[in-house]
Amino acid sequence: MRQLLLSLLALPVLAYGADMAPDTQSNHLRDPNAYSDGYTLDSGPYVLPGPRQLHMADEDNFGHLLADEFEWQEGGVGAYDMQAWYGGTFNRVLVKAEGEYQNSQLEDARTELLWDHAISAFWNLQAGVRSDNGEGPARQWLALGVEGLAPYWLDVEATAYVGDNGRTAARVEAEYDLLITHRLILTPKAEMNLYGKSDQARGIGSGLSDASLGLRLRYEITRQFAPYVGFEYQRKLGNTADLARSEGDHAGETKWLAGVRFWF
């Protein structure tokens, strides 16, 4: 009798799982009308007469600004990693900006203007342009990549670039929020950059150019405002490290840092 009851209780779960096949689920989680059997707010037998009275949030455009890193680093270096977007659920205009400045001078900066398009429940396709500024000549690139949430709640960005004179590059970044409490959050972050050919004017060698590993501990006073402390290890690799040593610079360094994360 106990097994019979358990089997009966499991039937709704099995039926629900059968309806939610992996392909259907991934394709329709962002579609507000995926499970309405064709009935929508402006078609079907249940449409209200007169002008439309109800609008859903996914039909409007919104804007968002996130300063994921806005910090001071050991050695008098200021650094930022920010992004802003405007659009809807499926398509957005996205701006990414990351860089460092010292003594009121911009040392290095990467700015991207992208079209951000949802391709599944947790992944977006991104395409656009990138501009590198700071020390050395400016460089422009075409960009194509993905950004999303990998298994185990890992935030991942992977982008490939094509520039002038046959230049190519790739960038991979991953980070994870570890909740110590509901307000105290530890975030490890790793980043790697690769280049297809050397660019001595900007101190870049071909191959795996550089990598960094950071650890930041933030306290969310509110969800929108969180000061943090941490450290970051930066390492130049391969031909890029050789170029740095030839200029009398260190190939690797560890910096303590403090900053604030905010969004609205």
Rank of each mutant, 00 (worst) to 15 (best):
R52M: 10
Q53A: 14
H55K: 11
H55T: 13
M56I: 08
A57T: 10
E59F: 10
E59A: 11
D60N: 15
D60E: 14
D60A: 15
N61H: 13
L65M: 12
L65W: 14
L65E: 04
L66E: 08
A67R: 09
D68L: 15
E69T: 15
E69W: 12
E71T: 12
E71P: 07
Q73K: 14
Q73S: 09
E74S: 15
G75Q: 07
G76S: 07
V77T: 13
V77Y: 07
G78A: 12
G78P: 03
G78L: 14
A79D: 02
M82T: 12
M82C: 00
M82F: 12
Q83F: 12
Q83Y: 13
A84H: 02
W85A: 00
Y86G: 05
G88C: 11
G88R: 09
T89S: 13
T89G: 08
F90K: 13
R92T: 01
R92S: 02
V93C: 00
V93E: 01
L94E: 01
L94C: 01
V95S: 00
K96H: 08
A97Y: 05
E98W: 06
G99E: 08
E100D: 06
E100R: 12
N103E: 14
S104L: 09
S104T: 06
Q105E: 15
D108K: 13
A109Q: 11
R110E: 10
R110D: 06
T111P: 01
E112F: 01
L114R: 02
W115F: 09
W115S: 02
W115H: 02
W115A: 07
D116E: 12
D116W: 04
D116R: 07
H117Q: 07
H117Y: 09
I119R: 05
I119C: 02
A121F: 05
F122I: 01
F122C: 00
W123E: 04
L125R: 02
L125V: 01
Q126E: 11
Q126I: 01
Q126D: 03
A127R: 03
A127F: 07
R130G: 01
R130Q: 11
R130T: 07
S131Y: 06
S131E: 06
E135M: 02
E135N: 08
E135G: 04
G136A: 03
G136I: 05
G136N: 05
P137V: 04
P137C: 02
A138Q: 13
